[in-house]
């Protein structure tokens, strides 16, 4: 049972979408996306029709990413639990909805142009997280992400 957040968890999701013809049918995705969970940061790379790489990253790496998704750990858990319960994000838990709900935004970037990758590949990134409905996610203790 993969633990969120971890490289193992993202790798599991990566394998699911890379083996899902529906993900490929959404079209090409070329983006380097950061996932920020409190102090933990991960980099997920999408290239052409697949997710090609997952790695743990640092605060400095954020500058080189197209955008990163950032919310509190509790909000991450809420989002993933909702996806697990509904098989996909419901109407109020999509990435875009969360982005508009957060004063600072969910998708953040240092680059006014590259940030738009969040919009251009929105459904693919959404499906990436929706794939987590297919696994039993174990959530790491709060200390693990705030240390």
């Amino acid at each position: 049972m993969p633990t969120f957040p971890s490289v193992e968890w993202f790798d599991t999701i990566k394998d699911i979408v890379n083996n899902d013809p529906a993900f490929r049918q959404l079209g090409t995705v070329d983006a380097v996306v950061g996932i920020k969970v409190e102090h933990k940061i991960f980099e997920v790379t999408f290239e052409a029709f697949e997710c090609t790489k997952v790695r743990e990253a640092s605060e400095n790496d954020l500058r080189d990413m197209d955008f990163w998704l950032e919310q509190s750990y509790d909000q991450w858990k809420d989002m993933l639990t909702n996806i697990r319960e509904h098989g996909a994000a419901d109407l109020s838990h999509t990435l875009n909805t969360i982005d508009l709900n957060l004063p600072e935004g969910f998708a953040r970037s240092h680059d006014g142009y590259r940030r738009d990758a969040f919009y251009r590949f929105n459904q693919s990134i959404q499906d990436f997280f929706n794939a987590s409905a297919k696994i039993d996610t174990q959530f790491a203790p709060m200390e693990a992400v705030t240390a």
Binding site: L91, T94, N96, T97, D99, L100, N101, Y119, R120, F121, N122, Q123, Q126
Partner: peptide
């Protein structure tokens, strides 16, 4: 983007998400 957020059903959600990608 706001249309997607306030969509009342899966159809509108889909429409606005895809229109957002194009735009």
């Amino acid at each position: 983007a706001y249309g997607e957020k306030y969509a009342r059903n899966a159809a509108e959600k889909y429409i606005f998400t895809r229109a957002m990608q194009d735009k």
